[in-house]
Amino acid sequence: MYTQGLDTLGADCLHTQQADSAALEERFQLRIDAEERIEPKDWMPDAYRQTLIRQISQHAHSEIVGMLPEGNWITRAPTLRRKAVLIAKVQDEGGHGAYLYSAAETLGVSRDELLDQLLSGAAKYSSIFNYPTPTWADVGAIGWLVDGAAIMNQIPICRCSYGPYARAMVRICKEESFHQRQGFEIMMTLANGTPEQRRMAQEALDRWWWPSLMMFGPNDAASKHTAQSMRWKIKRFSNDELRQKFVDITVPQAEFLGLKVPDPDLRWDPDEQHYRYGTIDWSEFQQVLKGNGPCNRERLEARRRAHEEGRWVREAAMAYAQKQRRREQAA
């Protein structure tokens, strides 16, 4: 979203003196505190810029890699309706990736650099997409739980202090709601089906429940970026707050489906009006994050292959555009 012409930074950005920079930083924080939005050409602390580039690009990569586990089922969707819906959903995820890459580019990083970071393995993406989708029920569970957790994370980002990120997120959130509902509908159909279908639904919930809770990131005490991100209003709620909200709304949905949440410690706390859940196995999260999840290698391999196999198309399109321009100029 608007770089280039807008990509010459404002005069404020040229201040280099130490004293200037402290004053600018103070003014910046005052603008944030006053709920003003920061736009691409505005002065911003370098750490704010870097934090946003990291967060937005990780988010973009997650959307793109997230197309893979579900794309796996497009050719085997059980009906034409399910297939049309799944194609539309996967296309949306690609679109979300594109909105987010554009938002990251407004911060002065190029699309190619971002792609390089993903393909070289330097950049992270949501660890949830390193889990496999062995059955059709996994497609339902992803829509219901993974997109549900994503919505919980993303709605507060619609009010993020950085304008282009917030605007991309408004668009994304509008589209995610369809994703979650189609997933729940798949689970509902299976849960009301044959005993075998019920079992498929239960096993998918068993597989996706804990990884979905991990999507909110480490516990607050262990989250190194949270405090500063909240001061900058990039983040509005802590990881644990969002995780709790997700558990509170999702447990009754599982009950409606007649499925059992795979957590022996789960119980309703009437005093606090919250569900209490068991301890998350963070060693699993760390392992998947480090690249040792079930599908890490396969996911990156698929992205690299797609990038390489598409290279001639990108280059041919560019060569054609250049030829057309030369012809126009000659005419």
């Binding site: 979203m1 608007y2 770089t3 296309q91 679109g95 594109a98 909105y99 554009s102 580019e105 699309r111 605007r167 991309a168 668009r171 990108r314 399109a317 560019m318 054609y320 555009a321 057309q324 321009r325």
Partner: peptide
Amino acid sequence: HVGSLHAADSNMAIEHARDL
């Protein structure tokens, strides 16, 4: 204004904008 995208030329930009 709704956002931005990359395209080889303006025709492709219209097509991508349609899809995106």
